[in-house]
Nucleic acid binder design. Structure first.
Lengths: 219, 219
DNA sequence: CGAGATTATGGCAGTAGCTGACAATTGACA
DNA sequence: TGTCAATTGTCAGCTACTGCCATAATCTCG
């Protein structure tokens, strides 16, 4: 039962079975990311990942629908983390402000979310790999577009609007997402140095949203 | 030689070999899109497409790197078409205005670009399929992100800026692209009825870019 | 505690996407 | 017409991924 599993996850002791599953999953992620970092995404086979995690190849596909998914597993956690951060923003904050603050708030605790599964540095390498591997980047963009849907939903809820009738939540989130992708790409090209740099980059680019839309750029 | 091929393409008679290649390619696209419409993307195999187009499966992969590519072939043409439309916009137009006008101008002639290869209605069905098939949609988003890069380049050129130093071109294009994706999705969900509807939708949503970024949404 | 219901895992066979290598065919061009 | 280059077909092979069934591990409840 997924629901019960999800609820008991953090509350009571999840039971041996659940703990074992989590360990297997984490082990698969770690093994995969390490192998990817070592030999590249395409040159790593699922069989190798399974072997490194000491499970059968068939089991791998019971945890991840495909090879992409294990590469993007941490992104998944981070996206959920971000969603939570947004929901915790005070209702008084303006939409765009809330989005921006949620990003920053979420980055403060992001390293903990990551390090619960893999070393931070490995995750950074993985992010660069995602940005530079077409197949992974495509899947990444797809997930982001689904996140944007949920973001728009949440933004609309905050503002007491209906996503179906008012275009502003979707438009805002689309623009916001665009900026995030641009900064993400830039950051990855610069080597994913520090979270500080990403923070500054994002601040600067988000601030340019208004000016970029201005009729005239002479300034 | 790609360059020579590209140049002679529309000028002199391209020669039998080139003509044959184009026919094979178009035939593959038509066969693929028809089969996709008939039995769905995943349930259509490359072997079937090749057989319908009367070539060997191996030849299919000489024209398209993978199965996704043939499904997105027309999008490819349309993106190139859009790029051209943007380049033809008068330099006096403001960045965002130029982007919007390029879209509309490009749609006026889009049907001709499409009908040179496949019936318009088949292309509409294909677009809906792209939006509703995760794997295709992911690939689609990836291509769009590459288009955005070129768009930013062109916008920067028009404004006499350097993409590397001024964030505005990229930010603007990212926001613009976000709106286009939102309208595209909406339009596909409504059944890709008419280009008119898409036009109205786009106009309305583009106009919301400014308001959506506003601090306060009470209005 | 122990029997029986659940659930996770492994093994295997098979499909489909995709590639490299080589041979055969076809168009280009002097 | 004959030579050269480009296109195509064939074939063997790898890898991602799935369905099926048997087995083994955990859980539940009397």
């Amino acid at each position: 039962m997924r629901t019960i599993e999800g609820v008991t996850d953090r509350a009571a002791s999840p039971g041996l079975r659940e703990r074992k599953k989590r360990r297997t999953r984490d082990s698969l992620i770690r093994s995969a990311l390490e192998l990817f970092a070592l030999k590249g995404y395409e040159r790593t086979t699922v069989d190798e990942i399974a072997e490194a995690a000491d499970v059968s190849p068939r089991t791998f596909f019971r945890y991840f629908a495909n090879k992409e998914e294990v590469a993007l597993a941490m992104q998944d956690s981070l996206e959920a983390h971000f969603l939570t951060a947004l929901r915790e923003r005070p209702a008084a904050e303006a939409p765009l402000t809330a989005l921006g603050n949620a990003v920053f708030a979420c980055w403060d605790t992001a390293s903990q979310v990551i390090e619960a599964v893999v070393p931070l540095e490995l995750h950074m390498r993985t992010y660069r790999m995602i940005e530079s591997t077409p197949q992974l980047f495509a899947a990444h963009l797809h997930r982001l577009s689904e996140v944007e849907d949920r973001l728009a939903q949440e933004i609309a809820r905050r503002a007491g609007l209906d996503v179906r009738t008012d275009p502003r939540p979707q438009v805002l989130v689309a623009a916001f997402g665009g900026v995030m992708r641009v900064t993400g790409k830039l950051w990855s090209r610069r080597g994913c140095a520090s979270l500080e740099e990403l923070r500054d980059l994002t601040t600067a680019y988000l601030a340019q949203l208004g000016p970029a839309l201005a009729e005239d750029w002479r300034s």
